[in-house]
Design a protein around this nucleic acid. Structure first.
Lengths: 233, 233
DNA sequence: AAAAGTCTTTGCGCTTGCGCAATGTAGATG
DNA sequence: CATCTACATTGCGCAAGCGCAAAGACTTTT
């Protein structure tokens, strides 16, 4: 467990990048490390909001369950990103989402009370949280717009482009989405079924836009996807 | 222009209800009143974020436009509610929504800079903003869930129940939604078309759940709507 | 009272994309 | 290597709900 390396990640995280050295030292003293295995949970929807986390290693996803058991993937967390920030709110009614590790993950976490006190000394923390929530609001509004106004095709294209931006790896053929990505997972990100995703991706492969495989997507013609996402047909 | 009455509304608004008397006085000195006629705008999506508002009179809606001109009604603002709070964020990239008066409206507004300074003296303002954004996030997540997992019928039922909670007026027959509500508006709140809304409402009237008219909805059997919203069919 | 404007209803056709079942395939496991 | 398991494809049928056009009803204006 390389606490040094993790410390560097926390130092640059969007939540704490602007705090001073003394407070950062405090942060390191009071943070706990949590290791969570693939498929296991940091917390589940409804759990009491005890901790705020910064992911240090691995990949984690935030998701919601619908009453009928369907999952909605809200966002993917990579090292340096914050999750559970909602815990900072005073009267908090439980985490609004579930945080599940996609691969073995390690996060540093702080008790909400500790951070609340720290935030009094270091107001930038509150501001950063506000900033994070703002981004999240914009993301949700955008998704809602897409759900209402766009067809499944467009939404799938959008998700692929977004994943490419977040996890893309340039290869000589195109952009490999460096991420174990099942059809099911794609479907859960854009509100459709794995069947529709499968059909759509295969059609795009036939057109030469993609190169797909088991849990693999390579974008060959990003521009083509952009056109689909924008509804230019 | 009854500044006194407005002052009382601001005093109780979710944004400022917890600030001290001195700061409240400052607030009143520095606030401006903006009157906006029916259909006119407080601000539009993309406008620079200059002011934060608390609505004092009338009704206003927050909406988004899709690229193809479709509207999405995000939320209805009633007196005492805050809008444009996003302006408090430091590097802000324009209002993410449009604020349009549904009826002649008056709001008190403050320059973002002024409020930012006030927030340094009165941290509860930041906390309240955080709280507001949190509510908004929960609302958006809920809407997204509904859009993905529920059928139009359920979403319409949900919207009616929500409107009833916000604007409902008990009459001897049932709950009147005291609000000029076109089919088009309902459609824009739940991501469908006015045709589908019209058909659905008429079906429900036939079943005795509603009493509908031009821009009027009276809920006769709230429980029936709840059952539909919950998908108990 | 007529005309104009807005909101609403309704019929019809049709596309989208879901649901399910059966089958195929790649990688992991023993 | 055989087996198992998870993931992926594909065909078929179907329901939901959109889109449009036309007509009707209620308001407001002149």
């Amino acid at each position: 467990m390389n606490r040094e390396a993790f410390s560097a990640i926390v130092r640059q995280s969007s939540l704490f990048r602007s705090i001073n050295a003394a407070n950062f030292a405090l942060l390191m003293e009071n943070g706990i490390l949590r290791s969570v295995e693939e498929e296991a949970f940091f917390f589940m929807q409804g759990d009491p909001t005890t901790h705020v986390y910064v992911l240090c290693r691995g990949r984690t996803r935030l998701l919601q369950y619908t009453p009928n058991g369907q999952q909605i993937i809200l966002r993917l967390i990579t090292p340096g990103q914050t999750f559970g920030g909602i815990a900072l709110l005073q009267p908090s009614s439980g985490y609004p989402v579930t945080a599940q590790a996609i691969e073995d993950s390690i996060a540093m976490g702080w008790e909400a009370r500790f951070l609340q006190k720290l935030a009094e000394k270091e107001p930038s923390i509150s501001l950063n949280i506000l900033q994070l929530m703002h981004h999240y609001v914009l993301e949700l509004q955008e998704r809602q717009r897409a759900l209402i106004a766009e067809r499944v095709e467009q939404r799938i294209a959008r998700i692929l482009l977004k994943l490419a931006a977040q996890f893309g790896q340039k290869t000589d053929q195109g952009i490999l989405i460096n991420f174990p990505l099942t059809r099911q997972a794609i479907a859960e990100m854009c509100g459709t079924t794995l069947f529709t995703v499968s059909r759509t991706l295969n059609e795009w492969e036939r057109k030469g836009l993609l190169d797909i495989g088991r849990e693999k997507v390579v974008i060959l013609q990003p521009h083509g996807l952009v056109e689909i996402a924008e509804g230019i047909n």
